[in-house]
Simulated scan of single mutants.
Amino acid sequence: MRSGKVGRRVHTHRPTRTFVSLTGPEGNIGDALIRRGTLEWALGTSDELVVYTGAGPDVWLRQLGVPDEAVVLRSKRSVPRWLWMLLTAPQHPVLVFEAGEVPLDRGNVLRELVFLAETVLVRLKRGVVVRPPRGIRAPTDPATWLHARAARLSQIALWRDAKSAALAGGSTIAPDIGFAARPAADAPNAARDELIVSLRGARPMPNVEWMQAIRRTAEAEHLRIRTVVQVREDEQRARELADALGGEFTPWGDTDAVAQEARLRAHYGRARLVVSDRMHVLVLAAIDGAAPAELVPAPTQKISEAFAAIGIRGISHDAATGDAEQLQQFLRAQLDRTSELRGHLTAARMRLAEIEHRMRETIRAARA
């Protein structure tokens, strides 16, 4: 997907350069979603765009819509060139970090030190540093301390939950950038005939009560059960769930990531209910008009906090705390929330558009 924003240039007397980090595995549609949102913010902010993709293959560039004229740096071997281009960049560069989770365990101290140095360098060049909505994972010191210093030096630093903001000493909570995506389909409820399940392969298989709740909900609502794969490593679990639930299984298989995303969103556009413990499965499902529900034993707060940040509460339930009837009641309640969800999703998209506009104004002001 090519963005129409490529042609929007910031007119200055001297050439300008924007750096954006877009790493991620091509086997994770959710990562592609938020990296694409990050790229949208970076496009059109400078004369030259420098993209670091890590080990991303060619299909990753197509997933994100990286423009052909961008300078693309791949693999860790290209990090010295990235740093050199940053060091030698003209005045007023823009540095855009990628949205998503930020691991701050003890193994990331050196990385955070480098990111702090990059931030200081851009500020010394009178440039602008942008940190799109992010969530902190596994915080430890000194990585968290370094990260907080870098965030405070950034003109735009956003957090997708209050806990992450507090850890970094920040105050601006914003919707996850994935909520900026537009619906791929807008089928009316009468045309929606699927209940979709997509669970992490690393978790244990759900128990009998969970299975009964899913089957009974599908029967009561006249829905077909389908399992799908949004992250490649979950494919075997999706196959097992389809067998256990008597549902249809849509594999990823040999399909490339671009086609797989389109196929997934077509299914979400036909679903009335999507059950998952993957945050961006539920984000895309909600955007495409399905009711999202997290129903697993001991759910983490990641999904509930991200949805609470846009005003949507109560979509997560601990499957270990009730019998099949209680779990079914939770799922039934989610099906009645589509109108409420639509309003919050529209407001989240508008909020993200306002933040992007403010970011672009900040860059223009820095170069005035």
Rank of each mutant, 00 (worst) to 15 (best):
G24C: 02
V79K: 05
R278G: 00
V275Y: 09
Q236L: 15
G269T: 00
D193K: 14
H317F: 14
E26I: 11
G65N: 07
V20L: 11
V129L: 02
A242K: 02
D161T: 00
I196T: 12
L33Q: 01
A166R: 10
E361F: 09
V208M: 12
G170Q: 01
W145H: 11
R106H: 12
E194H: 05
A257L: 08
Q212T: 15
V6S: 11
R36G: 09
P25E: 15
D323Q: 04
L86T: 08
L43H: 04
D47E: 14
D186H: 08
T172D: 15
A181R: 14
L335N: 04
P103T: 09
L158I: 07
H344N: 07
Q155W: 00
V228E: 00
R8T: 13
P80R: 06
P183L: 07
P297D: 09
Q301Y: 03
I310W: 02
A150E: 05
R351S: 14
R149F: 02
A143Q: 07
R351H: 14
T16N: 11
R337H: 09
Q230C: 07
T23S: 08
R216C: 03
D161S: 00
M279L: 09
R152Y: 03
D256I: 00
G100D: 01
L113Q: 13
L335S: 04
R123S: 03
A187H: 02
E294Y: 06
A190T: 01
A213F: 00
G37N: 04
G24Y: 02
A353R: 09
V274M: 00
E325N: 12
H267G: 08
V122Y: 03
V228L: 03
D234I: 03
S339A: 15
D234V: 05
A324Q: 07
A89E: 13
H222K: 14
P25H: 13
P80V: 06
E233S: 15
T140H: 04
A143W: 04
F97N: 06
L61P: 07
R360L: 06
D68Y: 07
G314E: 05
G4L: 13
V72A: 14
L282P: 01
D318T: 00
T12E: 03
E101A: 13
P299K: 08
G269S: 02
M211E: 14
V129E: 01
E48W: 03
A42Y: 05
A213L: 00
H344P: 07
L110I: 13
M205E: 10
M85Y: 11
V229N: 01
P188W: 04
E101T: 12
R349H: 14
R237C: 13
P139K: 00
V20I: 09
I34L: 15
W41R: 14
L284E: 02
I34N: 10
M85P: 10
I196V: 15
A320T: 04
P90L: 05
A366D: 07
A324W: 11
Q329W: 10
R182M: 14
L284W: 06
T119C: 00
I225Q: 10
D323G: 03
Q260K: 03
E305F: 02
A266Q: 06
T53D: 12
N28K: 06
P299D: 00
L73Y: 05
G246N: 11
